[in-house]
Simulated scan of single mutants.
Amino acid sequence: MSSNLAVLYDIPGPKARRRNLILTIVFLILLAAGLWWVYAKLDAKGQFDWKLWKPIFQANTWTTYLLPGLWNTIKAALISVVIALPIGALLGVARLSDHRWVRWVASVIVEFFRAIPVIILMVFAYTLWFTVFGSSSPLASVVIGLVLYNGSVLAEVFRAGIQSLPKGQTEASMAIGLSKSQMMGQILLPQALTAMLPAVVSQLVVILKDTALGGLLLMGYNELRRAANTAGTNLKDQLQMYVLIAVVYIVLNLLLTSTASLLEKRLRRGKRGPRELAVMMTGAEAGGGPSMVVTDEQGNQTIA
């Protein structure tokens, strides 16, 4: 083995394994003790009585409170995602523009809205909407706040994804005469999409969860958290309702990440295999134009 090879991880010896085992046991004991303490406190308050948990299994609780709130949460998240994704892609590409003024404008927009907390953007949008139209629209205010903030964050995700591609992709595109828009739309963005997908999905999860901020601040926006709070107040089982909506949020996020994982696998499977494209400026092709050398996973090279 080469002496220049960096060692990333040393296999633990007997003492290290013994120490790790002891620390693991101590941690599990402390965790079990903490969970038991929480359980004992809740049990002493009667929080595990069936009469407090029964309402969350009743159809009337869902139809009256939770389902309308869940629909408002999903609706705001979907609208925000549909708008924020293309805005993020546009701003991300603009930050890579050859025109300085385009890069400058896009950079100002991205850095400005990334620096402002999304909750302030929602309140500002609510106030601005009322000032301009003379009426309030909590849903529009939530969507505007989410789009402005998350669109700016997604712009950085798109920019980083494009810049992570090998420079040979850009050079090859320019060598075969593609314009900047063709290079972005046909070469760089499709390849970067697979690499960006985990980060994009993480931001979509943030959008879904941040819809709760609108219900916390804006009167009239009855999303899932506010609906559960109202149900808990009326049915006198506040803790149980918050446990329930925590589970609902976890399920929604798992569905979102699972769908994204399936999409990522499908995108990778749709490719014929990992290929490295290089442009060879040779006179072998007719007219002396650039030829494309394709190297497949077995190392075989062909000229396209």
Score class of each variant (00 low, 15 high):
residue 178 L to V: 04
residue 123 V to T: 09
residue 189 L to N: 01
residue 189 L to W: 09
residue 186 Q to D: 07
residue 151 G to Q: 00
residue 164 S to I: 05
residue 137 S to G: 03
residue 174 M to Q: 08
residue 125 A to I: 13
residue 176 I to P: 05
residue 160 A to Y: 09
residue 188 L to Y: 01
residue 162 I to S: 00
residue 128 L to F: 13
residue 202 S to C: 12
residue 172 A to T: 11
residue 142 V to Q: 00
residue 176 I to T: 06
residue 181 S to K: 03
residue 172 A to H: 01
residue 186 Q to K: 13
residue 187 I to H: 00
residue 153 V to F: 15
residue 148 L to N: 04
residue 130 F to N: 06
residue 149 Y to M: 12
residue 138 P to K: 03
residue 143 V to Q: 02
residue 183 M to N: 15
residue 147 V to E: 08
residue 200 V to D: 04
residue 204 L to V: 14
residue 188 L to F: 00
residue 173 S to G: 08
residue 185 G to S: 03
residue 139 L to E: 13
residue 164 S to E: 14
residue 203 Q to K: 12
residue 171 E to V: 11
residue 180 K to V: 08
residue 150 N to A: 07
residue 123 V to Q: 13
residue 147 V to T: 09
residue 204 L to T: 10
residue 166 P to E: 06
residue 131 T to C: 08
residue 146 L to K: 10
residue 199 A to M: 11
residue 196 M to R: 03
residue 156 E to N: 00
residue 124 F to Q: 08
residue 167 K to S: 03
residue 192 A to V: 07
residue 203 Q to T: 13
residue 177 G to K: 11
residue 181 S to T: 08
residue 133 F to T: 11
residue 160 A to H: 06
residue 158 F to E: 00
residue 190 P to T: 06
residue 150 N to S: 05
residue 189 L to I: 12
residue 191 Q to S: 04
residue 134 G to C: 10
residue 135 S to C: 00
residue 154 L to P: 04
residue 182 Q to H: 07
residue 138 P to H: 12
residue 191 Q to W: 02
residue 121 L to Y: 10
residue 130 F to Q: 08
